[in-house]
């Protein structure tokens, strides 16, 4: 498993550099917006996941991976683990940068951040990844880039309405049991998605 994670970091150096660039650009342009912290975290996390997965299909690299002494189950599990790592790092980075700016430039960011502001973006990307990864592993090399484009378009269309909904909900007072319940359900969905993807990828002919 560790070797597969290492593989992703070595093979996707360029993609990871691109994620840092996306993070920086979105921070610069959206920092003043109320939902900037959530939006930057979510978009950076999801774009990193999609570029990491796309990296495995660019040159039919799954054909290479399955020749290594590792099972298909481990290949899929490693992708879920690295997705989870990317989600947490991206959301935390967004939280840290926004908090630092709030401290450094008083009045520039008016929103007060709490634990919920970290958990909600994590939950949103976990749901997206839970849908995206099984589709990615069951589609052919030609289908995967199309899937990425569809998800990116959906993401851009849905980002603002979702952000507004979160904002309105937080104005009406946060229902903590509901938030924690939703987060637990999301984690269960993520684990179930991993199980389904292992099943689909194990049966797939390459």
């Amino acid at each position: 498993m560790l070797n597969l994670l290492r593989k992703d970091f070595i093979a996707a150096k360029t993609s990871l550099a691109m994620s840092i660039l996306i993070f920086t650009i979105f921070c610069i342009f959206f920092m003043k917006k109320e939902m900037s912290m959530h939006f930057v975290g979510i978009i950076t996390a999801f774009s990193t996941i999609s570029s990491l997965t796309l990296n495995d299909t660019k040159n039919h690299n799954h054909h290479f991976l399955v020749t290594l002494p590792v099972s298909r189950k481990h290949i899929v599990q490693a992708k879920y683990v690295i997705s989870l790592i990317c989600i947490i790092i991206a959301v935390l980075a967004s939280y840290i940068v926004h908090s630092l700016v709030k401290i450094a430039v008083p009045g520039y960011i008016t929103v007060d951040y709490s634990m919920i502001d970290i958990l909600v973006p994590i939950a949103i990307v976990l749901v997206l990844a839970s849908v995206y990864l099984p589709l990615f592993y069951s589609l052919s090399e030609k289908g995967a880039p199309v899937l990425n484009v569809i998800f990116l378009c959906l993401f851009l269309i849905m980002a603002d309405p979702v952000a507004q909904t979160i904002h309105r909900a937080s104005l009406n007072g946060i229902n903590y049991p509901l938030v924690y319940g939703s987060l637990c359900s999301t984690l269960i969905l993520f684990a179930a998605s991993c199980y389904v993807t292992v099943y689909l990828f194990t049966k797939k002919d390459l």
């Binding site: 070797n3 290492r6 593989k7 070595i10 093979a11 150096k13 360029t14 990296n55 660019k58 040159n59 039919h60 690299n61 799954h62 054909h63 290479f64 290594l68 002494p69 590792v70």
Partner: peptide, 21 residues
């Protein structure tokens, strides 16, 4: 058909492969 990662160097490809064996 070579299915190695096209964007990495031979040295990095070896760094990916070697720990598996």
């Amino acid at each position: 058909d070579c299915f190695y990662y096209e964007d990495v160097s031979i040295r990095d490809m070896k760094r990916i492969i070697a720990p598996f064996y």
